Simulated assay, not measured.
Amino acid sequence: MLPSLDSLRCFVAAARLLNFRAAARAVALSPAALGQRIRELEEGMGASLFRRSTRSVSLTQAGLAFLPAAERCLEAARDCVRAARGETGPPPMEITIGTRHELGMSWILPQLDKLSEAFPTLDVSLYFGSGADLLLRVRSLEIDCAVTSSRITDPKLDAARLHREDYVFVGSRALLKERPLSREAHAEGHTLLDDSRDLPLFRYWRDAPGGGDRLRFKKIVCLGGIGAIRARVLSGAGVAVLPVYLVERDLAARTLRPIFPEVTPLHDWFRLVFRADDSKRSVYEGLAARFLEVPLV
C-alpha cells in the first residue's frame, strides 16, 4: 500500500528538524499524532526510518535513502496542484500529424514555424500517407492525429472540422482540344484517372445533381494520390476530378479546363482527426483553430 501524502509530510518535517515536537508544530499536529503517522509509515515500509532515544533523533540508513524520494513525491504533488490551478505552463509534448503529401508540403509544412510560436512546448512531426492509411494509423495510435477529407465511420475516431474542400472535373487544354468531352458519348475516348477503384474522387461529380452514372470511359487508371493524378492530367494522359485548391493556378493559366461546368461537384471538408478517447483533445482543438486561420493553398 502506498503511503499517504500526509504521512510523507510528517516524515519529511521530522527528518529535517530531527525533533518530533518541533516537527509536530510544523505540520499542525500533536506530538502523539505525528508519532502515530511515523509508526504507520514505518510499518507500511517494513523498515525503521528513525533512531529515537530520550536525548536525540536521527535517521536510519533506510530513512536517509527514503528522504529524497519523499521530498520529490511531495514536490510532484505540489506540481499537480499548481498545474490544476493553471499556475504552470503546459508540459512539453510531441505529436505527429499525418497528411497527404501534397497538402502537407503546400499547406501544413509552411505553418510549422508559426505553430511553434503559438505552441512553444509542442514539437510537431509530420507523417505523409493516404487517406485510409492515415485513419488506420490514428486508430492504432501510430500517429496522434491527421488532416484528411476521408469520411469517418469509425466510432473510435473524432474530428475537428477545418476548411471546405471543393472539387472540379478537369482535363488538359491540349487533350480536350484534340478530343472534346462535352457529350456523354465522348467519354468512350477518354481515360479516367482516380485514386483507387472505388473512384473516391470521381464520385464527387457522379453523385452531384446533374452528374450521374452516365459516362462510360475507355478505361480507368488508379494512381494512388492526387499529386500523381494532377501530373498525369496536365500531361494529357486522362481526365479527373481534383480539389480546386490543387488546380486553381492551372485553371487560371488555362492549362486545365473544366469539363461539364454546368455540374457542380459535391464538396467535402478537411478535418483534423484524432482518437475519441485521446486525452490531448484540447491540444488538437487548438491546432484546428490555428489551421482555420490559414487558407488552403
Rank of each mutant, 00 (worst) to 15 (best):
I229G: 08
K218M: 05
A76W: 03
I95Q: 08
R254Q: 12
T54C: 06
F291Y: 13
V241E: 15
A22R: 06
P243E: 15
R216F: 10
K280Q: 15
A160N: 01
L49N: 12
M1S: 12
W107G: 14
S282W: 07
S48I: 05
V297F: 05
S150H: 09
L193F: 00
A187D: 07
D195V: 01
S106K: 09
G86I: 04
T96Q: 03
L109E: 11
A174S: 14
D278F: 02
A118Q: 10
L176P: 07
S30D: 15
R183A: 04
F291D: 04
D113I: 01
G189K: 05
S196H: 01
L246T: 04
R254T: 07
L199A: 06
H267P: 14
R21W: 11
A22W: 11
L193R: 00
A14V: 02
R161S: 12
E43A: 13
P265F: 02
T264Y: 03
A187V: 03
E178T: 03
K218F: 15
D133Y: 10
Q111M: 07
L223I: 04
L134S: 08
M93S: 13
A187P: 01
W269R: 09
L103R: 10
D79M: 09
I220T: 11
Q111N: 12
V221A: 04
V273C: 03
Q111D: 13
G238L: 02
V57N: 12
L17W: 13
L192H: 14
D277A: 01
M105C: 13
C80H: 06
L193Q: 00
C73E: 07
